[in-house]
Amino acid sequence: MDITFVIINAIVVASIYGLLAVAVSITWSSLGLINLGYGFVFSFAGYCAYVVAENVSEFPAVVAAAGILGGALAGVMICLLVFIPLHDKPNFTTRGMIGTLAISLIGSQALLMYFGPRAKSLPEIFGFWSVKIFGTVLTSDKIGIVVCSIIMLIVVVMWMRGSRRGLEIRAMMMNPHAASIVGIGIRSTGIYVMAMTGAMAGLAAVLLSQTYYIAPFSGLTPLIKGVSIALCGGLGSVSGAVIAAVILGLTEAITSRYLGGQYVLITQFLVIITILIVRPRGIAGLLDKAREQ
């Protein structure tokens, strides 16, 4: 195995998981909700894209849009079912986390009942072509995945910086209480946040299904990877999540190059634990400023 090949693979995977990590991160820091339902959002978006590809059109943009919309829909569903009824109740953090887990259980079982246990595959969105750069062959799906996730990330960051809604979300991140005092609706902002992060998870589902299949429980590994990256980068920080995704991607590449594939999780985990012991709130997280809720 060539080292550049491994590194490229790691970057591709890291860019997908990075999307989920940023989604988890934004949800936690703006809403105070630990959303472990992204596994379900992920599978739901994948199945949405699959249904559209089967019944409507296999045109790449349509499939991707179906995935993104499906993810946003699932995110809004979680928001309506868990965040809005619970956000002002006692023990919100624990109950919210368990509620999203329950949604994920229900949703995955529903997908299993409806679509059956057989995995589905999506059409190739990026076609079949390859480019040779500096002696390395880059296939279409790898370039497409990296470019798409970077574009999505840039769009999200721009939207958060430039728009009125983004301003509201950033205000919620800084101080949810003060934000609600100055007239930013917690519930409406919750719906925007969950729709946006759900859309990110949906895109991640479509991108990952270029390599893997769609199954009712396929969202679990991306969720855990995404959560680990978000944790490592500091919950609530987009730049931290990007740095963590790169670090963990490199760890994965180096481990599978020099130690072997089965040690990837162990080394990644050791790296995460080391980072967290040195900086308990992640790479970009501030030590004293935990989100109070």
Binding site: T93, L220, I273, P280
Partner: peptide
């Protein structure tokens, strides 16, 4: 328990979720 000394509740929850997955894969 070592990370539990430093980490807050929900950071620890997510970490242990990862640990579970690590054991499964291993």
């Amino acid at each position: 328990a070592i990370p539990a000394l430093r980490l807050d509740g929900f950071y620890y929850a997510l970490l242990t979720l990862g640990l579970n997955e690590l054991c499964r894969v291993f």
